[in-house]
Write a protein that binds this DNA or RNA. Structure first.
Lengths: 120, 120
DNA sequence: TCCCTCACGCAACCAACGGTTGCGCGTTTC
DNA sequence: GAAACGCGCAACCGTTGGTTGCGTGAGGGA
């Protein structure tokens, strides 16, 4: 019960801005704090802070070239994060289905023809 | 691209304490702020605040009985949240696999026998 | 070469959030 | 009726996501 989750990794992808950043980086292959901030509703500095967070949990890596600092996604680590999402989702899903089955069984045992709880 | 997500709903299940609360409520069927706080590493007041958040996004509903306030999970809404987790996970997963396939194709086209990037 | 621009990092500041303690109020219960 | 219980409200604190402002080092023309 209660799937084990790396809270740092989870909370890293928990932020909507960070998810959009990962989206952009995956689409473009790489990007800088400045280039990302141009396509996001926050300032460069805010983006830079998020990049620090993502870098700290290993979801992105940076390579400095001259005055630019290019970031790109670490696919392996993102795969791990995705796996955790799937894990939690699957655990809850299974439990919900179990509860639903039990509820239906009870209804059936009562011989009820009440159809007020068909789908969700 | 960039799966649509209800940010309020997502951030509601984003908090680790709130996930554990949902776990407990699902297991027990229902619970009060006090009963939950006894099994969590935070105070009753903190739990109460989280319950407000969960209630606001419709993940739980409360029924007051005397001096007690029983909370229980709204399965339908939780199912929606789970679906969103799955959606985001699937979107990223597909994108990662696409990137991986492209990378492998390039390697193959080069006739490379370099096995330094087999599995992650 | 010199200067201007660009990308970045650092610092200060602010609002929101998660958490705590303390207190008051209504409901049970003995 | 009084004690005990469950809850809500308010004040306070640290962290986090966001902003503005400024300094600095790398590039790219005149």
């Amino acid at each position: 019960m209660s799937v084990m989750v790396d809270d740092d990794l989870w909370s890293a992808v928990g932020d909507p801005i960070r998810r959009r950043m990962l989206d952009l980086l995956l689409n473009d292959g790489s990007g800088t704090a400045t280039s990302l901030s141009e396509r996001l509703p926050v300032t460069r500095q805010a983006v830079a802070k998020h990049l620090v967070v993502l870098d700290r949990v290993g979801l992105v890596h940076a390579t400095t070239a001259g005055r630019e600092k290019q970031f790109r996604v670490d696919q392996a680590q993102l795969a791990r994060a995705v796996a955790q999402l799937a894990e939690v989702g699957a655990a809850w899903d299974a439990r919900l289905q179990r509860i639903k089955r039990i509820a239906e069984t009870i209804q059936r045992r009562r011989g009820t023809t009440n159809d007020s709880e068909k789908k969700q």
